[in-house]
Design a protein around this nucleic acid. Structure first.
Lengths: 224, 224
DNA sequence: CTATTTTTCGAACGAACGTTCGACTAGATT
DNA sequence: AATCTAGTCGAACGTTCGTTCGAAAAATAG
């Protein structure tokens, strides 16, 4: 009955990825509880029972989507951070990576940001652990920034979580036709944060060179 | 069968409020779709069918919770803003009002922030309209701030929505035993925002008098 | 006390849910 | 050619869902 021939392990994995993508879309549109496996069957073109060849439960399906998205964003971030030493550049890279990934994979990220309540305890803990690692990475960059004297006295936990708030809320309002693209958005958010937690001297600047910051030069490009 | 006597219209309204409170709790814990009317029946002590005397559908129940919360926060804000003219103070008041209400009614606000996808089109539009009014109020305060020359050139929509991001994300991480109380939290968030969007001069200061800003005086009280 | 209105609930409805099962197909292996 | 394995699906399972209905109790009015 399968019209195209799934000959090997490769094709099977690819089909699973296709299912995960469609499932993420359905979850992002109707919510985890509001979406039915039948919805996902319809969206993916795989029969209801056929889906269970690829995942053993609805919970596991959500888990697979979340783990995949989180792992990707973290791997990508660690790769981009590898060569960077300057704390401000590291933080700007984290923000850019986060927002770019968000806008490039809006459905997966919406599921990630919106559906952590729905996962139950075997899976819940594992996703929470990765989330914690991500927060700790951001926190350590913030602490480097602070050690460099570029942050004023303030509660670091609240500061970092406020940054995540700005970034994670974007999915609720961003419209590609109206709002700036990812790189510009990342710049604005990073500017607000760095100025916002800064000690008043320096901070907001356009992309400087890998080391040292550029001289003051006004950034144009506003929009009313 | 009711043991206490609901004598008049007052008591009936009070019981509805009790049901709304319990329903908000259940929705905040299990999500709108994940929660069943039977859960709400159990939590509120009213029989399954008895609930339908107070609201006509699950959708309407969610609508009532959201409208009530939104109306309250907006009314309270407009009252507090009445006497204030200084844009910075007006913005600080908005932030304080928002965060205080959030932390005082965490369940209702979680439902408000988390479940706008679930509402369908007769109700959805009405809630969206109030949300829009709230955003516009914040936006107009930001524009006043800008007109006063205290904001640098930047995309105002992105700025204001980033502020909402910081505020609306709090419900995902705030733990009363670990994190600062509402007033302190509001101060931090307002500081980050005002410094973050500011033009470099002035901004972050402890509550000044209703008009004019106080002289520089260091704000102590940090926490590692 | 009687009549009326407001409030409550047990029982049941059909629909939709997540999941399972056994049969079937088609390519790979021997 | 016979066997095996990976992949697919229709049909059905038992459960839970939101909602309805009619009766009965409690409060109010005359």
């Amino acid at each position: 009955m399968p019209r195209s021939a799934p000959n090997n392990h490769r094709d099977s994995q690819a089909k699973l990825q296709r299912i995960l993508r469609q499932a993420a879309r359905v979850f992002s549109e109707k919510g985890f509880e509001g979406a039915s496996i039948r919805d996902i069957s319809r969206a993916s073109g795989v029969s209801l029972s056929g889906l269970y060849y690829y995942f053993e439960s609805k919970q596991k399906l959500l888990y697979l989507i979340q783990i995949h998205a989180f792992t990707s964003i973290l791997q990508r971030l660690e790769r981009r951070l590898a060569g960077l030493l300057d704390p401000e550049e590291r933080l700007r890279t984290l923000v850019a990576n986060h927002i770019e990934y968000f806008l490039r994979h809006p459905m997966e990220m919406k599921v990630l940001a919106h559906e952590d309540l729905a996962l139950e305890d075997p899976y819940r803990r594992e996703v929470a652990e990765i989330k914690r690692r991500y927060y700790q990475l951001a926190r350590s960059i913030f602490d480097e920034l602070r050690a460099g004297g570029r942050v004023r006295r303030m509660n670091p936990r609240v500061a970092v979580l406020s940054l995540f708030g700005m970034m994670n809320w974007i999915y609720t309002w961003h419209h590609p036709r109206v709002d700036p693209p990812a790189d510009r958005l990342a710049e604005i958010v990073a500017d607000i944060f760095l100025e916002g937690v800064g000690n008043g001297q320096a901070a907001r600047r356009a992309r400087p060179l890998p080391i040292g910051r550029g001289l003051p030069q006004h950034r144009a490009r506003a929009s009313a």
